[in-house]
Simulated scan of single mutants.
Amino acid sequence: MALITVTGYPCSGKSRRVNDELVHSLQRRIDDPSYTGPIKRIVVLSDDLLNIARSVYSDTKAEKIARGTLFTNIQREMNRETIVIADGLNYIKGFRYQMYCAARELSIRVATIFVAATPDICKERNETRISSSDSDPSNAYEPDILDNLIMRYEEPSSMVRWDSPLFTISWLDERIPDEDIWKAVTEGEVKPPNAGTSAAPKAPTDALSVLEQTASSMVSAILAEQSASGSAGGSIKLSIQSTESSAPTKGKVQGQTLIVNLPPRNVTLSELQRLKRQFITSHKKAVTLGSTEKGDVDWSEGSVRERFAVFLENHLSL
């Protein structure tokens, strides 16, 4: 139902705000007998809950893997009945945008909470974690890592769509704006997926084999027709046996007959094989991605035959 991205400097108090205030406030509203909405549960995802050590932020590769772990778990938990709270540094605006796109793909609401604290406050809290016997030292950052993360932090902005709506909570604020956050995740605008955020439709698992077999059958049919008719190219009719049970054809394909316009000469096997390889290579990316720049690809035999016929007509020289 919603993704709440929590961001801020290390040791700014993000997890305390989430666990002691935000979760309790949201859960109280969900449990209220007067609430009849779809939200049924709250899931918090953080470095601690995912067993991500603070030391990963000293290594670019390890940090990238850690972000991937968080993102994968966010995607797994997002649905229409859950509020997912991403409680982490989330200091890279590109990563916040990635999470926003994943939420928009599922047409669920988003909100960003910026827990603001000065660098000096964060460093003081980190030092307390290191020196205090009552705290777990694994929750502290090495001083150089902390300095580096603060320096690299990219502050959220209400002016960009992936950080909006943005709720800024100062370390001096006594409480969070829980009523406004609740309205954002239950009544806020739901932005539909667009071309940049919607999932590309996947090609069938047999798309590549259909591509190969259909093009090969057409090459054989063209050679057989040339040999049987003795004609020197021109417009020829091909009768090709389809393996599809009842797929309607369109365009040039009339039943099982396909018209191909060849140059006025005999086309050789080597030419056809070369063009078949080029045709298949040009479509492999579409097989992998599931779509082309202009839209979805139709992987039926009839559609592949039609596209290969056009490809031959455009690439066979006179």
Rank of each mutant, 00 (worst) to 15 (best):
R29W: 01
W171M: 15
N126T: 08
A195D: 13
I92K: 05
S245T: 14
V185E: 05
D120C: 09
I145C: 08
E174W: 15
M78T: 08
P38K: 12
S15E: 05
V190H: 07
D180E: 14
M78W: 06
V304Y: 03
H315C: 00
I240V: 12
S157W: 03
N266G: 13
K284P: 04
M151P: 04
S300N: 13
S46P: 05
I74D: 03
L149C: 10
G233L: 08
R29L: 09
N194F: 14
I240W: 03
P156Q: 02
A199V: 14
Q254M: 11
F95G: 00
A102P: 05
S270F: 06
K252Q: 08
T168I: 08
P192V: 13
L26N: 04
D163W: 01
G188V: 12
I42E: 09
S317W: 02
T36R: 06
D147M: 02
R161W: 15
L211E: 04
S245L: 14
Q273L: 15
N19H: 09
P263W: 04
Y141K: 03
P38N: 12
L166M: 07
A53P: 09
F95R: 02
P264V: 12
R96L: 06
F311V: 06
P137C: 09
Y97W: 11
V110G: 03
A203K: 03
Y91R: 10
K252A: 01
L149V: 08
D120L: 10
P143L: 00
M151A: 12
T205F: 11
S229C: 14
R265H: 07
L49D: 06
N148V: 06
P10Y: 00
T205Q: 14
S58W: 01
N126R: 06
K14N: 06
P204Q: 12
S133P: 02
E124S: 15
K284H: 11
I169T: 02
Q241Y: 10
R129T: 10
N90L: 00
V267M: 04
K40A: 13
E313R: 09
G230C: 10
I4E: 05
T118V: 11
D173S: 11
T205V: 13
L172G: 13
E187Q: 15
L272I: 04
P33E: 04
P156Y: 02
T112Y: 02
T197M: 00
V297E: 02
P38M: 08
F311W: 04
F167C: 01
T186P: 05
V18F: 08
T168E: 08
L269K: 15
E179S: 14
N19L: 11
A247V: 12
A203N: 03
E306D: 10
V84G: 04
D20S: 14
S246N: 14
S220P: 00
F279L: 04
S303P: 04
D136A: 09
E127M: 10
P156I: 00
N51V: 07
Y153I: 09
D87H: 02
S46R: 01
A195Y: 15
V115L: 13
Y97T: 07
T118I: 09
Q241F: 10
I130K: 01
V219N: 00
S133I: 10
M1D: 08
N73M: 12
K252T: 00
T5M: 08
E271N: 05
P248Q: 12
